[in-house]
């Protein structure tokens, strides 16, 4: 797909997003939207390049995979040979050039540990992590919105007080500790739920819960605050004076305005889960996803695999951010292009 075609497609996508504008404005707005998206894409590319570069150098500083891969009694010659096979004896700059060339083609080379393409391992593990994140953070988002709204509608009411207390508690418990508590309660004491692996649908309950609770706590607080802010605004009073239903006033008028901070945090919760929290959760529950892969890659000093994972997560994070920016702009067309 040539750049001109890509631009044209983006343009038509922009036009569809700009449907709420009048026909006269639409062409102009769509062009601005196209520029907006291209600009955000460009930022994304820079971020991904930056992150992978950092990972390349950091992984090369922290340790020597050859030491771990060979038995202790291996000779110096064997070590040198291994190093040569892995390309680790080349000058750093040359290694980096090779690395960048690989990144550009999504080819990081073979995993040092499993001896097969690192990207294959990543793509094989990614769906499990995506599933865990979708269920966990998805549930947190879906629950936080009604709870936060109810809390905001009746400040100091029962729901409000309960959610605030539970949220604060949820925020102060470390995630690994929460996971262990859940294992003890539901796995050991009650014996209701499996605590390790991913063999049945039930296996996802405890890891998803552990992943979800701190996010739920943060999200509820943000929904509550954002909705309280909006419900106090003059336009809400006006909307109520028009005799509209409570659902319309709260759900369409106020929630639409509160949606921007809620969406932003939701996106960050997904990114935060992918970029860190799943490592803890997958380790505790032996959930066979990317998080577990990272831990294994670090244990085995598998630089190649580690790079592939970090690169993938960076791409996902950038993609989610881009989507957020576009949704944000669709909700609030006043958002600046710069």
């Amino acid at each position: 797909m040539g750049p001109a075609l890509a631009q044209a497609r983006l343009h038509s996508f922009g036009s569809r997003l700009a449907l709420s504008w009048s026909p006269a404005q639409r062409g102009w707005q769509a062009k601005r939207l196209t520029n907006f998206i291209l600009q955000r894409l460009w930022h994304g590319v820079i971020v991904v390049l930056g992150v992978t570069t950092i990972v390349f150098f950091v992984t090369r500083v922290i340790g020597d995979p050859v030491q771990l891969m060979l038995p202790v009694e291996a000779t110096l010659e064997q070590r040198a040979l291994m190093r040569h096979q892995l390309g680790l004896d080349l000058p750093m700059l040359q290694q980096f050039v090779q690395f960048v060339r690989g990144v550009a083609t999504f080819d990081f080379g073979d995993s040092l540990w499993q001896r097969r393409p690192a990207m294959d391992i990543v793509l094989q593990r990614l769906p499990m992590t995506a599933l865990l994140t979708a269920v966990g953070i998805g549930a947190a988002i879906l629950l936080s919105i009604p709870l936060g709204i109810i809390a905001a509608l009746r400040p100091d009411g029962v729901v409000d007080r309960t959610t605030v207390v539970v949220s604060l508690a949820g925020l102060s418990i470390p995630q690994f500790w929460l996971g262990l508590l859940l294992i003890i309660l539901f796995g050991v004491k009650l014996g209701w739920l499996p605590t390790s692996g991913a063999r049945s649908p039930l296996h996802i309950v405890l890891p998803a819960l552990t992943l979800a609770l701190p996010s739920l706590a943060r999200l509820i607080m943000v929904v509550r605050t954002a909705m309280m802010d909006e419900l106090n605004r003059q336009y809400v009073k006006v909307a109520r004076s028009k005799g509209l239903s409570g659902l319309r006033v709260v759900g369409t008028h106020a929630l639409r305005n509160a949606a921007v901070p809620i969406l932003t945090l939701s996106g960050w919760e997904v990114i935060g889960a992918l970029a860190g929290n799943v490592v803890v959760v997958e380790t505790i529950f032996a959930w066979p996803g990317l998080g577990l892969t990272v831990v294994q890659a670090i244990e085995r000093q598998d630089l190649v695999l580690l790079q592939a994972v970090v690169f993938t997560v960076a791409i996902l994070a950038v993609g989610i951010n881009l989507a957020l920016d576009i949704i944000h702009k669709a909700i609030d067309p006043r958002v600046g292009i710069r």
Binding site: Y235, V238, H253
Partner: peptide, 8 residues
């Protein structure tokens, strides 16, 4: 401030 800024 009487009109909702995000609705036409």
């Amino acid at each position: 401030t009487s009109l909702n800024p995000l609705l036409t």
